[in-house]
């Protein structure tokens, strides 16, 4: 993965597969504390303690199409390379939260990447799922909720290219405003 946004997209796909109705993506940048935190939380089917334990093992996967599962192991590797960690909290039937911490100024911390593109592709590709994306940088924050967007454009599907383009630009502008990009 070239950047953190792509990791987020990858982890969010797990939430989609887990049957989540709501997926919350949170990015918290605290430059004073030198912390860059990413959290992806869902209300999907969750995992058993054994599955949680095995999730960071690249040779474990719940799929049958192939024998490896690299999404979480790669994310963990990138976090640890940047002086951080990856943690999974999950309970069966309730959902899963994946949290990755990076040292903000670490030379191996990847760039944030194109969050506008990632969030809108997730939204457009899965209009039935509610995505909430909150980004905090120091004291400034911004929040986007696809349910609110859906209400604003009532009847027009979230997969409509015009909507995707507009929301993509809106996220990019907001991130610039809070100086996250």
């Amino acid at each position: 993965m070239k950047d953190l946004a792509l990791h987020i997209m990858d982890i969010a796909q797990n939430s989609i597969t887990a049957g989540a109705k709501t997926i919350r993506v949170e990015v918290e940048e605290d430059t004073a504390a030198n912390v860059f935190l990413i959290r992806v939380e869902d209300d999907g089917c969750g995992m058993s303690p054994r599955e949680v334990e095995k999730a960071t093992d690249p040779y474990y996967t719940s799929r049958t199409t192939r024998k490896v599962g690299l999404g979480i192991p790669l994310f963990r590797q990138h976090a640890e390379q940047a002086g951080g960690y990856l943690q999974i909290r999950s309970s069966r039937g309730k959902g899963t939260a994946v949290e990755a911490m990076f040292r903000h100024d670490h030379i191996d911390r990847q760039e944030l990447g194109d969050m506008g593109g990632v969030v809108t592709l997730l939204m457009g590709g899965n209009p039935e799922i509610r995505f909430c994306y909150r980004h905090v940088r120091d004291k400034k924050e911004f929040l986007i909720d696809t349910r609110e967007i859906g209400e604003a454009i009532e009847g027009v599907p979230l997969s409509e290219p015009g909507v995707i383009r507009y929301v993509r630009e809106m996220i990019r502008e907001q991130l610039k405003e809070i100086q996250a990009i």
Binding site: I149, A152, I153, E154, G155, V156, E160, V163, Y166
Partner: peptide, 8 residues
């Protein structure tokens, strides 16, 4: 976005 709605 609301303004765009009609057009879309």
């Amino acid at each position: 976005l609301k303004k765009m709605k009609g057009e879309l």
